[in-house]
């Protein structure tokens, strides 16, 4: 009896080739690592994260806990969160000084009343449904920032290249700053919101949409718009060097 037919021999060679092709890929897959940690947290916890590069995604959940899932491109990367009196500090820059660690992607879940202070040299930042005191998202270079369902009293979103999208409410007496070097800034707000605005775009592309009214002041030939919307009780500063500022009604 013939043990191997010609067809099964070809199949074997194909399988061998497939495995040879996969070998280097599997190496990189296994070089990555995923770590997850849970920390007890009060309702008003503050999370600080200083990343080098990669995506940061923050979501809320109903537990009094912070859960952090970190996907690290390099096994050399160190991930060492520190608990403080006010919450949790993750300093990837400090922990990995002088090392090339590649992307580190974070998914964070925490109570809705939390504050977050997020910073990365490059990568995306996304924060959803947060109602704490502070939301700060800063990208030193390139990356989009998405802040959705936010009702924090202080919001700061800044990057150099990339879009910024904010969908939320401005608290009375709150401070809100959005700044991009090159990218579009879109603010989606409820119709009844009130704020004092200083919006600056050298491109003169500031689209106030339904929030425009005759009392607003155009400065520098339309490169800046200053004025109150509604009761004007929160302070909103928007600056975009090379993009469009867009106001949308919810």
């Amino acid at each position: 009896m013939k043990l191997y037919s010609q067809a099964s021999g070809k199949r074997f060679i194909k399988l061998l080739l497939f495995l040879i092709i996969l070998t280097p890929l599997s190496g990189s897959v296994f070089a990555q690592q995923r770590l997850s940690r849970n920390y007890p947290a009060g309702k008003n916890v503050r999370l600080e994260l200083r990343n080098i590069s990669g995506t940061i995604t923050v979501e809320t959940w109903a537990k009094d806990e912070i859960r952090i899932v970190a996907d690290m491109e390099s096994r050399k990367a160190t991930f060492n969160p520190r608990q403080t009196e006010s919450g949790l500090v993750i300093d990837i820059v400090g922990d990995n000084r002088g090392r090339e660690v590649g992307d580190m992607n974070f998914k964070i879940q925490l109570p809705a009343r939390s504050s977050v202070d997020l910073e990365t040299r490059s990568g995306q930042i996304s924060v959803t449904n947060l109602q704490g005191e502070l939301v700060r998202a800063h990208i030193w270079t390139s990356g989009d920032i998405t802040l959705a369902g936010i009702t924090a009293a202080r919001v700061f979103a800044t990057n150099t290249i990339g879009d910024i999208y904010f969908d939320g409410e401005f608290a009375s007496g709150g401070t809100y700053e959005f700044k991009s070097g090159k990218g579009n800034i879109t603010l989606r707000l409820p119709a009844n919101c009130g704020f004092r605005l200083v919006a600056t775009a050298p491109t003169k592309s500031i689209k106030m949409g339904p929030f425009w009214h005759e009392g607003m002041k155009l400065m520098g030939e339309g490169r800046r718009i200053v004025g109150d919307v509604g009761d004007g009780r929160s302070s909103v500063t928007v600056t975009d060097y090379q993009g469009t500022i867009n106001f949308l009604r919810r």
Partner: peptide, 23 residues
């Protein structure tokens, strides 16, 4: 730095430089 980081830095710096020069 890696090549990618150098490129990212230079690209972003050019955006800021453009704003400086324009103003």
């Amino acid at each position: 730095w890696s090549q990618q980081m150098r490129e990212t830095f230079d690209r972003n710096m050019s955006v800021i430089d453009a704003a400086v020069n324009d103003s």
